[in-house]
Nucleic acid binder design. Structure first.
Lengths: 105, 105
DNA sequence: TGCTTCTACAACCATATAGTTATATACTGT
DNA sequence: ACAGTATATAACTATATGGTTGTAGAAGCA
């Protein structure tokens, strides 16, 4: 585990460590979207969405396709959701553990 | 995807978004460790390690066990490494894609 | 009862970055 | 060429947090 690898891996986790970006990725789950569509769907500011998309693109989570005035963003691959599902699975497990503790009292 | 869930999931990704914490988790892969052992292995400051461990414990990535003067930390479960392996898989795929681009020139 | 060691915590500083505002850039249509 | 629209970018603020230093608290031992 060299420092470079550690830095790379952690930067990818950090890319998913912001609610706004998870929301954007979740929107893209339904298919590619233009920036303005994402702005509308997420209620975030245009510049804000644009910045998040730059980062998600730089970290290879989304791909881009320009068509005239519009830029279409899409999920680079499905592995993002494997990650999210794993993380959600952890949360469910925690919540169940809490339930068991409550029930045991 | 409610804001609460988004906040929870993103906070867990954020927990893995710091090189120092990945390093600590990596050390724990070999088995449980005391704080001072982790300090020695990672070359991080004691207070720093302690703070990271608090966060990793609060986010259920590690468990703790106190024995006399020492506190032993251990991985809460193996799913952390599923996450890391997935993320590393992404990096490998990216790197291979870059290689292909270079080779194609 | 001290004295030592291990861990946690508080207070602080420095830095990274999320979000906003304003503007620049790129493209389309008239 | 000009006007309008979509996206990106620059500049800025506010905030969160990683790391450090110093200290407090807990447990063992003389």
């Amino acid at each position: 585990m060299t420092p470079d690898v550690l830095a790379l891996v952690s930067s990818r986790f950090r890319a998913l460590g912001v609610p706004a970006r998870l929301e954007i990725l979740n929107c893209l789950r339904a298919g590619e979207r233009t920036v303005s569509e994402l702005v509308e769907e997420t209620m975030l500011g245009q510049a804000n969405v644009s910045k998040h998309l730059q980062l998600l693109h730089a970290t290879n989570f989304v791909s881009r396709r320009k068509d005239g005035l519009f830029v279409y963003y899409a999920l680079a691959d499905e592995s993002v959701f494997l990650l999210c599902d794993l993380m959600c699975g952890r949360l469910v497990a925690e919540s169940e553990a809490r339930q068991r503790l409550l029930a045991a009292r």
